[in-house]
Design a protein around this nucleic acid. Structure first.
Lengths: 351, 351
DNA sequence: CGCCGGTGTGGAATCGCTCTCACATCCAGG
DNA sequence: CCTGGATGTGAGAGCGATTCCACACCGGCG
């Protein structure tokens, strides 16, 4: 009967959609019950070798994949996690940092059945939709990237107790929340120390966004290094992590502090912008002025001169974030400690 | 970071999870049957005003959201669409083109309940998982970006008849498949014509990947413009759409054709790489050599000199792609015609 | 007054899966 | 020979929604 139905369906070239095989059909073909088929497919505990083999064959022949909705309905697992991006704008999406996150997470989940749902959380009305989506557990967990000061996500996540991991230290951490991050403070300090060791005595900085931990911490590291060395720490201008922002900031910095001979820029994207401006001002890098950037995500190697920069292992960090989330979801997490990565300097031509 | 952070975390994890309200509970609270409650929630056809009001109140009070899995099981709609990226590597993810796609799609679906599932389709074994995922209709439709020549996706999509729209013309189009794209051929031609009009007589090109339609078409446009003008069309080197690839290609081009005074580069990313190399070779842009790029996605405005380039309205195109897909899914699509956008030139400093 | 069509309602059957539980089978040990 | 545990199996009860269908009710028309 089943065979007849199928061939009929095949024959009709246009109308009916190819109907996805069900567990029932697999079971019938394998000559076992639905229960046994289900067991064979999910780990095969308490299944005889013969039954297992028969089911395997049937699955392969029919191209069977479990219906996710049906499975979710009973197990209450969705086998999907959200990647939450609290900003819709170009800034985040075009940043290689975001691309790295995507790649790392994709690596982490490659071996699992887990799908990545992209949640781009706009402000206002639509933020509510995102919140509801998370709160009602339409995903098993969430990875949050680029967490600003004013986001309401934190409370939503707390009250729903959804497993989650932040990529980059969240601004507020009243409740213990797990995150992965590079040591931004130490990175800023080391970068600046490198400039000092290279002979710079007037070292400026272009900061990142100061409503993000990465921006604040890198700035703090720069300041500490200068204070430790007894050098002035007043040549500071704000940037926004973008190339254009970096260029604009550089103009302002040169105006206010023409004496600088060293520059720590809180991201390579901004450093690339800075290089263009410096060139047009006739300041040679690294001879007149040395630059150290931050991130080392591809941009640094394609500027001229190539950038000396701090390594920011985003792909690796995000992969770890994915694994930590997985551990939380499966309940095998032993602690919610953050995982901090070191920031090594990568020396190229600019300093 | 401190010891008691963890204990607090574990303490917070204890206790019953907030149980999501069901339709049953809504119905009971509203004093109606499950059927009526369901009808009231889904459009409210054939529901009396009183019943509707009672259900609305109950929904609000309980904070009810329909269980997606249960709904999907019966309606066979998943309310999610896949964004398929047939390459896992850095190249695609870091390209601003991809970021633009994300943003456009996110716009298109912002007003709907539809979620975006990111499908990063690796090669080999894992590609099979992706194919199965699509074939078994775990999503209502798919948007495919960056479609190469050797992908097996096409046949999978064809046989499953899954609604889909390509962003960028797919390499193979034996069956009628809908896509959105910029007119790459015309773009390449206009860019080159602009260089000719500016007085260039030896115009080279750095191509994109030649296993993608965008690469081939832009090249064809460049060639046609030169042939029409009776100029030589032999100064062609292959690039790969990346900054580093653009830089390398430029080196090769200068080696083989030092006489060039104009250059059409098939993407701004590659053009940025080219600018660096040209600067280090002492070739002034635009005085010694004029450059026109392609894409105008932010990079073009942050190089120095700023790039003259062809506008590639990716965000807009992807938004349209999302809308076309929506139309296919709801069955309101009137045709599967591709939608082609014009490529306007944006004149800045490089040509 | 009887009948008809339209409206609103609730009962009940699904959708495809997991998982509990009862049962059959088999072998070891008393 | 009987008992007990271990092992594999299948029947069947849900999971939480949608939707078909039968039915009650009501106003209007012949």
């Amino acid at each position: 009967m089943t065979a007849d139905v199928r061939t009929t369906a095949m024959a009709a070239a246009v109308g009916p959609l190819p109907h996805a095989p069900t567990l029932e059909e697999v079971a019938e073909r394998a000559g076992v019950s639905r229960s046994t088929a289900s067991r064979a497919i999910n780990g095969g505990l308490k299944v005889s070798p013969e039954a297992q083999a028969a089911v395997d064959v049937a699955v392969a022949e029919l191209g069977y994949t479990p219906n996710r909705a049906a499975r979710t309905l009973v197990t209450r697992r969705t086998d999907s996690v959200a990647l939450v991006v609290p900003e819709p704008d170009e800034r985040v999406l075009t940043d290689p940092y975001f691309a790295g996150t995507l790649q790392g997470l994709s690596d982490a989940f490659a071996a699992t059945e887990i799908q990545l749902v992209l949640l781009i959380a706009r402000r206002g009305e639509e933020a509510q939709r995102t919140n509801r989506y998370l709160r009602n557990r339409h995903v098993d967990g969430a990875v949050i990237v680029s967490h600003h000061r004013d986001d309401t996500l934190d409370s939503v996540l707390a009250e729903s107790r959804l497993p989650c991991v932040f990529v980059g230290r969240p601004w507020t951490a009243p409740r213990p929340v797990q995150y992965v991050d590079v040591n931004n403070y130490l990175g800023g300090r080391r970068a600046t120390e490198h400039l000092i060791a290279a002979g710079c005595r007037h070292i400026g900085t272009i900061t990142g966004l100061l409503d993000m931990a990465a921006g604040v911490d890198r700035l703090a590291g720069w300041r500490q290094a200068l204070q430790d060395a007894g050098l002035p720490d007043d040549a500071m201008v704000r940037g926004d992590f973008t190339t254009a922002g970096g260029a604009a900031a550089t103009e302002r910095l040169l105006q206010a502090h023409p004496e600088i001979d060293g520059l720590f820029v809180a991201s390579d994207l901004m450093a690339a912008g800075a290089l263009g401006v410096l060139a047009s001002h006739g300041r040679a890098v690294p001879d007149d002025l040395k630059i150290v950037g931050f991130d080392n995500l591809g941009v640094a190697a394609s500027t001229s001169p190539q950038l000396t920069t701090m390594n920011n292992p985003v792909v690796e960090m995000s992969r770890v974030a994915g694994e930590l989330l997985l551990a939380q979801i499966t309940g095998t997490a032993t602690s919610l400690e953050p995982r901090i990565f070191g920031a090594e300097i990568v020396i190229r031509a600019s300093a």
